[in-house]
Design a protein around this nucleic acid. Structure first.
Lengths: 347, 347
DNA sequence: TAATGTAATTAACACGTGTTAGTAACACGT
DNA sequence: ACGTGTTACTAACACGTGTTAATTACATTA
């Protein structure tokens, strides 16, 4: 703060060369001849002055910011909001660092205007955006995409070609239901993670249906209830299922948080898990290990989603045409006690 | 990508004025006379061209980046790493947005050089840094501080004047132990969250001691065991306490994750919680609500820490001398079932 | 009428860097 | 002696903005 920071001009003066030479040396520009002595003099001078190039100037002239941004929509889903953020962030930043990029984190609060992130792109804060939780009614998103601005969605926007990374919800649900089927269950209920307006909710329901039909069972709407992100919604949905003339012997709950509510409802009802009713959840949030009984669930690869989104975005930025721009990542079945399997090893 | 983005020169041309006028209008520079018609012409032109100023150029000339960075050291503490990040990040970004700043997120992995963040400051990526989990043997930190670079620590560096924000670990521990005392316990053990090399660990132990002494009890080293961040360390530590000739009737475990391990040890030993041994944890991680019995604990205000650190940093950046530059935030006792209190209401 | 003041606008410089086109010095072959 | 390369370096421009000092046009005052 006291003395001004050194510029490349200061380095040039100290080394007795031109500013151009300093730039050429410090950036290791290939195919340019600089004598070893001069090169060393420049490096010494830079070190002595503790010189760091000013990134703003560099960005201005190069047109590249070497920064990507994560735009994080805070929706109503607290699980998504809190449980996945650390893994996703770590994945994105790891990818960013690997390619020499920085990460700008930009949450969009419910009271923010939806297109608050546009400024990041238009003002050249960043070379590209990862948009988490895109809304299909967002016009600025498609506008940016049409203008050729590098964009990757975390989530999906059906009917568009916008590059995206998401979990394979359909296959995840199939894994869960298939597991219950393999344990002998034939009357399997489902509680969705959210209302069907949410894509992930539709997809997980679809997987449930596919798994049943592949096993020769008919889909019965009466066995399906709708959750709404939180525990309480799971409790209520489960009570409805328990009220049926013939309740299911197993339930697939497409969200761990909702599943925890369902679990509570079953226990409060005087039934046992998994002996009377088996449960499989979805997400593998941290708490799933700690409820009683520990929850069998479908793990979502948060780190992998982050890494993949980051890498895909950077490859788009650098014009390195990736073959697949819409990626679905596999889930993993984590067997714990709530499903009644002999024991899978999911620690 | 196709056509080049518009510059202020384009706006000036379209509005039929000089570039200077455009700048004056768009930045609402006070005490400068622009006729209303001209002003409107400029605004219209900017809107028609969808003009956004280039931040790199703006930063270069102004010398301000309007960006702060969060440097996140990934230590061995998984709880700290994952459970607090969402709240802390939300707090910092909220503060940043409130003052018109952006946030750069920079994790430092164990394999990164410790001073990898210095480039952020020296290269003018950011106007200031929040350093989470500072190490006292970090020379570049003190160097930056001496050079007057705006810095706020999340955590503490005893013996320095570097501005910092942290939880009041001593008082938090006192709250926990005081609660157990008020329930009638006289033989209270402790398991630390980590080895005593960690400041938070020493402070929580200190609080335990102070609370005992304030109640007229003598500190007994045989009742103190040392945890090491994870469940397993808590299990082992608890087994040692159970092996004592006279085990304690209550335990203060200075980390929820460690406490969950201790809880398991007690139950595995055939004892009941809280009837035989009461437990109070520390941190209030998400899982604390879901274990059986639900864990009474000390809540750490993650959002508040983030907000306070962000606001303090920005006030330092903007030369708005804050009166207190070393802040300790209060914790909150969350009563659940593991302590045996009648019921506090901690949901 | 000339001097003075005020409102509205702009020319010109600065910020610190990357990069292109060019120059000077010198060796080499004919 | 003269062109032809090659090596090692530099002068000058560009990037897009904020801001200071100057300029013009015009009303007001002495």
């Amino acid at each position: 703060m006291n003395r001004p920071r050194p510029t490349s001009r200061d380095v040039a003066r100290l080394a007795g060369v031109s500013r151009t030479t300093v730039s050429l040396v410090l950036n290791n520009v290939p195919d340019v001849k600089i004598s070893p002595e001069t090169r060393q003099r420049v490096l010494d001078a830079a070190r002595r002055l503790n010189y760091y190039p000013d990134v703003s100037a560099r960005r201005l002239v190069s047109g590249k910011t070497h920064t990507i941004a994560l735009v994080w929509h805070r929706g109503p889903d607290a699980t998504y909001r809190d449980a996945f953020l650390p893994g996703l962030l770590q994945g994105i930043t790891r990818a960013a660092r690997h390619y020499g990029y920085h990460l700008l984190f930009r949450p969009i609060d419910p009271d923010d205007p939806d297109e608050a992130y546009v400024e990041l792109a238009r003002g050249r804060h960043t070379d590209g955006l990862v948009l988490s939780g895109p809304r299909s009614d967002d016009p600025s998103l498609l506008e940016l995409y049409r203008d050729g601005f590098p964009l990757v969605l975390h989530g999906q926007l059906p009917g568009t070609e916008v590059p995206s990374v998401d979990v394979d919800n359909v296959r995840g649900a199939i894994q869960a239901v298939h597991h219950l089927l393999s344990l002998g269950h034939r009357r399997i209920g489902m509680i969705t993670n959210a209302p069907l307006a949410y894509i992930s909710s539709r997809q997980r329901l679809d997987g449930y249906r596919q798994a049943l039909e592949a096993a020769g069972l008919t889909y019965d709407p009466e066995l399906v209830q709708f959750g709404n992100f939180d525990e309480e919604s799971g409790r209520k949905a489960m009570l409805s299922l328990l009220d049926l003339p013939t309740p299911p012997t197993a339930v697939f709950v497409a969200s761990d948080m909702v599943a925890i509510g369902a679990l509570r409802a079953i226990l409060d009802h005087g039934l046992r898990v998994p002996e009377d009713i088996a449960i499989v959840g979805f997400d593998d949030i941290a708490a799933a290990r700690f409820v009683s009984p520990p929850l069998t669930t479908i793990r979502v690869p948060a780190f992998g989603l982050g890494w993949t989104a980051g890498e895909l975005l950077i490859r788009i930025i650098e014009q390195d045409q990736p073959e697949h721009t819409q990626v679905l990542l596999e889930t993993e079945l984590i067997v714990r006690r709530s499903c009644g399997a002999k024991e899978g090893g999911g620690k």
